[in-house]
Design a protein around this nucleic acid. Structure first.
Length: 439
RNA sequence: GGGGGCGUGGUGUAGUGGUUAAACAUGCGGCCCUGUCAAGGCCGAGACCGCGGGUUCAAAUCCCGUCGCUCCCGCCA
């Protein structure tokens, strides 16, 4: 018999149906048994009168919570049933996979184990509706990203993750043996999307894994995460990148809002709103002024940079004064940016770069890139980098690479701020950190 | 890499020097209950209080070390 989803049972009154799902609760009484069954569309009660089928009653008594079951029965309306006013009168139960008691933990109980333990049993943790919803929303968000890119002439790219040389720094690279030599795991598709600009692709995007060998122990860092990157050509400044980004992100928020706003309110208690355009923009100079008036004191060694506390303070300030969850902070000093960020022609101490803060969290870095190979080489030297490992990269800019810029965004960080998740480990399917390689 | 916090039955917590070496909730096992529904009632099993050392007449409780987890900073998305 064809499977019926639990949410559709109300249209099947007085019919015999098959339901498949997990046993959430068993109330095994003297003469009656009640099974609360869960599939991803909802919950339903299945009732069984023991004397009607003692054999089935005995079987039901052996089923552990969270076992996967296939049940058949007649759907009947019953006002007494608090769960939707209907129930399934059980005719048969097939235990697809029994879950022996006790479970490591019950995903739908009131007192959940601490997160690290739940990550050990991630598949049980993911059985909670709230956790499943995070990934439904992520799916909607990624689809919306692609909709916008495709509507705007972007090409999808997949750059290699095994690379022969560091693309930016060096310390945060994972190394791996590679036949007779050593390779690295890419910590960004940065150089390859720039190569696509040199190739004349004009607009590209990539959603893919990036690896960072930083031993970071925070609620917002991972050693492997999904990077969302885009890069566009023929821009006049980083402002063009910011304009593209805010339209793109607003589209993503609109689609997530259309499909999930009510669920997000119910499950995450977040009033999900589509951000207004344009996002507020602050130069770093302005940001410093604001921090001063807000009484936020940056450590002196952070001159020209923002620390996470400053980012939170700016996020709060912008929320309060503009009502915006987002703010671009732009025109960062050369000292704190990558060598390939283009510098202002009229102010060589500043880069044509930006960060996007969402609810005070850094979710994006972007910039116009330096596409003139002589200038780029000079800037690398200026940063004290050795040119040899960058030789192939410099070659991208020798024969007609157009002016271009782009950005990188952390997918899980976006989910964090969309849903007010306190920890990135909740926003990612399987977390990878310095001490977490399993499951 | 630097700093803070935590580590007690399966799980979540209480207990922070001493009445019977550990309490509560939940889960688990058993019994009871004409249909429960955050089910309820009774009974039961389950922790040498992360590990090692020390202080003390006495340590889950104080000290040191160690391991694990966690958060903050650094780094970044």
């Amino acid at each position: 018999m064809k499977r019926t989803f639990i949410k559709d049972l109300k249209e099947k009154l007085d019919q015999t149906v098959t339901v498949q799902g997990w046993l959430q609760t068993l109330r095994d009484q003297k003469s009656m048994q009640f099974l609360i069954i869960r599939d991803h569309t909802g919950l339903v009660q299945a009732a069984h009168w023991k004397k009607g089928n003692p054999e089935l009653a005995e079987l039901i008594s052996t089923i552990g919570t969270e076992s996967s079951l296939t049940l058949t029965g007649k759907v009947v309306a019953n006002e007494v049933v608090k769960l939707g006013g209907l129930e399934l009168q059980l005719e048969s139960v097939k235990i697809e996979n029994n879950a022996p008691m006790p479970l490591p933990f019950e995903p739908n109980s009131d007192n959940l184990p601490e997160q690290d333990f739940r990550l050990d049993w991630r598949y049980l943790d993911l059985r909670r509706e709230r956790n499943r919803k995070i990934f439904e929303i992520q799916t909607t968000a990624e689809q919306a990203m692609r909709e916008w890119w495709l509507a705007n002439g972007y090409i999808e790219m997949h750059s290699p993750k095994i690379v022969g040389a560091p693309s930016e720094g060096g310390a945060e690279l994972f190394t791996l043996p590679y036949f007779e030599t050593t390779a690295y795991l890419a910590q960004s598709p940065q150089f390859y999307k720039q190569m696509a600009m040199a190739a004349g692709f004009e607009k590209v995007f990539e959603i893919g894994p990036v690896f960072r060998a930083d031993p970071s122990f925070t609620s917002r860092h991972m050693t492997e995460f999904t990077g969302v990157d885009m890069e566009i050509s023929w821009i006049n400044s980083h402002e063009d990148v910011m304009v593209a980004m805010e339209h793109w992100l607003a589209h993503v928020y609109q689609k997530v809002h259309d499909k999930h706003a009510d669920e997000i309110k119910d499950l995450f208690d977040v009033d999900f709103t589509v951000p207004a355009l344009p996002f507020p923009r602050l130069t770093m100079a302005e940001a410093y002024q604001i921090l001063k008036t807000q009484g936020y004191k940056l450590p002196p060694e952070r001159k020209g940079d923002l620390d996470p506390g400053a980012e939170r303070a700016l996020g709060a300030y912008v929320k309060q004064t503009c009502g915006s969850d987002f703010v671009f902070v732009k025109d960062w000093p050369v000292a704190v940016r990558a060598f390939y960020h283009m510098r202002h022609a009229d102010n060589p101490g500043l880069t044509m770069s930006f960060d996007l803060l969402g609810k005070g969290l850094e979710i994006t870095t972007g910039a116009q890139r330096e596409h003139r190979v002589e200038v780029l080489t000079a800037q690398a030297l200026d940063k004290g980098l050795s040119l040899e490992p960058l030789k192939d990269y410099f070659d991208f800019f020798r024969y007609g690479c157009p002016p271009h810029g782009g950005l990188g965004l952390g997918l899980s960080r976006l989910l964090m701020i969309m849903l007010d998740l306190p920890n990135i480990r909740e926003a990612v399917y399987l977390f990878r950190g310095p001490n977490r390689l399993t499951p």
